[in-house]
């Protein structure tokens, strides 16, 4: 590409520096179209008209039924919804408790020794790459598809992502109080729990709620493989009773909004 240059009226020449933005844009576009080499598109199977049909099936009562039936079904969901909440709550709590010592061990500013924080981080990274689905299946192989398996899988997921979020936060705290507690004879655990934990406590809580919300949503996937909760009900009804699936979507939506409202209330309290 030739460089753009300008000649001013007083004879000075200004050369515009080369920008690579067009090159990058071109690379991204080429990659984008290359993606469709492995994403087959078969126009004969696409039925766009289905969009409105499906939406109508989902969010209105089925033929021969009333809105009363539609909402009555929502009320019947209390048990699977409670199961989803229980699974997510227990899993998030166990994972959040586990993440504390591990976040401590992953923080460069606390443990200082490379030989401790590097292996711990590698282990946590490995844990994070495991798809929850695989964890569920492995646990289910020993304990069967039930609430217990779901809780263990959610705990492991929570443990892996909260540890990362928490240690990244710990590495940004004010280390002054930690130094002060080491100076008055505290060991690392004491200094951590009196100088670092109080600083990250509100953030820890908001991570907890954030992860809880993710877990409630992902419990749909767990249910899909049969590990309990609302996902099981969706799996039973999808493709057969659209109105029921629609009702479940609305209930989940309300639940997630409620968690978000609760979380912003908690956060405002902690400020």
């Amino acid at each position: 590409m030739a460089r753009e240059s300008f000649v001013l009226t007083n004879g000075k020449v200004v050369i515009k520096p080369r920008t690579k933005i067009w090159l990058y844009t071109a690379i991204v576009l080429v990659l984008f179209f290359a993606c469709f080499l492995v994403i087959p598109i078969d126009f004969r199977t696409i039925r766009l008209a289905q969009v409105s049909v499906i939406l109508e099936k989902l969010f209105t009562p089925a033929p021969g039924k009333t809105w009363g039936d539609y909402f009555a079904y929502m009320l019947k969901l209390d048990q699977p919804i409670m199961e989803t909440i229980r699974m997510s709550f227990a899993g998030t709590t166990i994972g959040a408790a586990l993440c504390l010592p591990f976040a401590f061990l992953c923080s460069r500013n606390i443990v200082k020794s490379k030989w401790i924080y590097q292996p711990t981080r590698v282990f946590m990274n490995f844990l994070r790459t495991l798809p929850t689905l695989v964890v569920v299946v492995v646990v289910a192989f020993f304990f069967g598809f039930n609430v217990f398996t779901a809780i263990i899988a959610i705990s492991i997921f929570t443990w892996s992502i909260m540890t990362k979020m928490l240690y990244e936060t710990i590495e940004t705290v004010d280390m002054g109080p930690f130094e002060a507690l080491e100076a008055c004879g505290g060991n690392k655990t004491k200094a951590f729990s009196y100088a670092v934990f109080p600083q990250v406590m509100p953030i820890y809580l908001s991570y907890f709620i954030y992860t809880f919300e993710i877990n409630v949503r992902s419990s749909v996937v767990l249910g899909y493989v049969g590990a309990g909760g609302i996902g099981v009900v969706i799996n039973e009804n999808i493709g057969i009773y659209y109105d029921r699936v629609g009702a479940i979507i609305i209930v989940l939506f309300v639940l997630v909004i409620a968690i978000q409202l609760f979380s912003s209330w908690v956060r405002s309290k902690l400020q």
Partner: peptide, 24 residues
Amino acid sequence: MIFQSFNLVKRMSVFKNVLAGRVA
């Protein structure tokens, strides 16, 4: 030990900050 920037945990009570001096 006393520091230039006090090194207190700002969101903890004064009492707990002082009590923390006895952890050892």
